[in-house]
Computed example of a mutant assay.
Amino acid sequence: MPAFHHISLLTKDRNQNVAFYTELLGMRFVKNTVNQENNRMLHYYYGDYTGSPGSVVTFFVVPHLGQRYDHDHFLATIGLKIPNNSLNYWQERLENAGVAATQQENQLFFDDPDNVAVILTEVPEGPLKSKLQVKNDIPGDKQILGLASTQLHVADLEKTADFFKRYLDWDVVAGQIKLSESEHLEIYQTKTPEKMRMGRGSIDHVAFAVKDDAALDDLYKKAQEQNWNIEEIISRGYFKSLYIREPGGNRLEFATMSPGFTIDEPLETLGESFALPPFLADKRAEIEANLYPVD
């Protein structure tokens, strides 16, 4: 089971966003839906062929989105892992696309169109299973495997470390939490008391994978007992989610592994039509009529 489930950000330009993540990075556009908290806002999901947990990067599409201000607390970077012996392929692919990338050892650093820092890390793991490979111009043995890392920036390192230890029994060692052999969280101290402001490329939340509803309910009860800042526990249709603000103010999500993205459209045509989970299906006409104008 992966440690990460998905990571969700804000984008201003949906066409640039789709082109970057599907055409350049080769991820599949697995879901074209809405933000369930604000049904006027589009929500795009990218991942491997099935959109399996641990492979997914999502974006809320917000036209006229302003500049972000990463100040007193924020999440940063999309870390993605690539298979063994694929770093040179990706360096050449980025170069050919005119994307400036810096190589450091087994990693490539570059920015997406919203100035989100993206990191590709070559790991010892082999390629994606064939059933997870996306049908595109990227060879199957070079395709992105899934999420590898992200960063939490907080004002008080000790409070955030205490949260992870007491709530999840995760240890912060040298500024990192090792989640698996190829997944980790980095934690940094911020240097300014100025308030952060969400904008282009802001990360709204990072989600961690939870086995099932029972395990999620246990986490919910534990968060209540330990008096953490719970936002909500809710079904998203594609998975059930628990949202918590860690003491530094960053939003964390814990999401179940199932039922997945095929509850409202077939696997073969994921992302090809505007999809709504069953509990929003009867509002389709109203939602489509009120979407924020884009393009």
Rank of each mutant, 00 (worst) to 15 (best):
229 N>D: 15
29 F>I: 01
224 Q>G: 03
103 Q>T: 09
234 I>L: 11
51 G>N: 06
162 D>N: 09
152 L>N: 05
232 E>K: 12
83 P>E: 03
114 D>L: 03
182 S>W: 07
94 L>G: 12
219 L>P: 09
91 Q>A: 08
6 H>S: 15
197 R>T: 10
40 R>E: 12
122 E>A: 11
114 D>F: 01
203 I>V: 14
161 A>H: 11
261 F>D: 04
15 N>C: 00
207 A>L: 09
149 S>T: 14
142 K>R: 15
62 V>R: 14
121 T>F: 07
213 D>S: 14
93 R>C: 03
90 W>D: 00
269 T>W: 02
15 N>T: 06
283 K>Y: 09
152 L>F: 13
188 Y>A: 07
150 T>M: 09
148 A>I: 02
26 G>K: 06
80 L>S: 08
277 P>I: 12
152 L>H: 02
103 Q>G: 00
50 T>A: 09
227 N>C: 02
59 F>S: 06
45 Y>L: 12
86 S>M: 03
21 Y>R: 00
125 E>W: 02
164 F>S: 00
43 H>R: 11
218 D>P: 00
98 G>D: 03
27 M>L: 15
210 V>E: 08
233 I>K: 15
278 P>E: 05
45 Y>R: 06
104 Q>Y: 13
5 H>Q: 11
217 D>L: 15
223 A>F: 10
167 Y>P: 00
247 P>W: 06
125 E>K: 04
74 F>V: 00
287 I>M: 04
59 F>R: 02
227 N>E: 14
167 Y>Q: 15
69 Y>R: 14
216 L>R: 11
285 A>Q: 15
2 P>D: 12
27 M>D: 01
111 D>T: 13
170 W>E: 08
79 G>M: 08
192 T>H: 04
131 K>D: 13
168 L>R: 07
1 M>Y: 06
161 A>F: 04
271 G>C: 05
32 N>Q: 12
91 Q>C: 01
120 L>P: 13
188 Y>S: 09
216 L>K: 07
83 P>F: 11
262 T>F: 02
123 V>M: 03
138 I>Y: 03
94 L>P: 10
73 H>C: 11
210 V>P: 04
13 D>S: 10
264 D>Q: 01
131 K>L: 06
171 D>M: 11
256 T>R: 08
112 D>K: 08
66 G>T: 10
67 Q>V: 01
59 F>E: 06
245 R>K: 15
75 L>T: 12
34 V>N: 05
21 Y>M: 03
78 I>N: 12
256 T>E: 03
195 K>H: 03
28 R>A: 13
286 E>D: 12
247 P>G: 04
195 K>N: 06
212 D>G: 11
86 S>Q: 05
76 A>V: 01
40 R>W: 00
238 Y>V: 15
66 G>D: 06
60 F>H: 13
37 E>Y: 12
185 L>P: 01
291 L>N: 08
154 V>C: 07
281 A>R: 13
19 A>Q: 08
13 D>T: 01
32 N>E: 07
210 V>A: 03
147 L>F: 12
167 Y>L: 14
156 D>Q: 12
60 F>P: 08
25 L>Q: 06
165 K>R: 14
78 I>A: 07
9 L>N: 04
119 I>F: 03
249 G>I: 06
40 R>M: 03
30 V>A: 11
13 D>R: 05
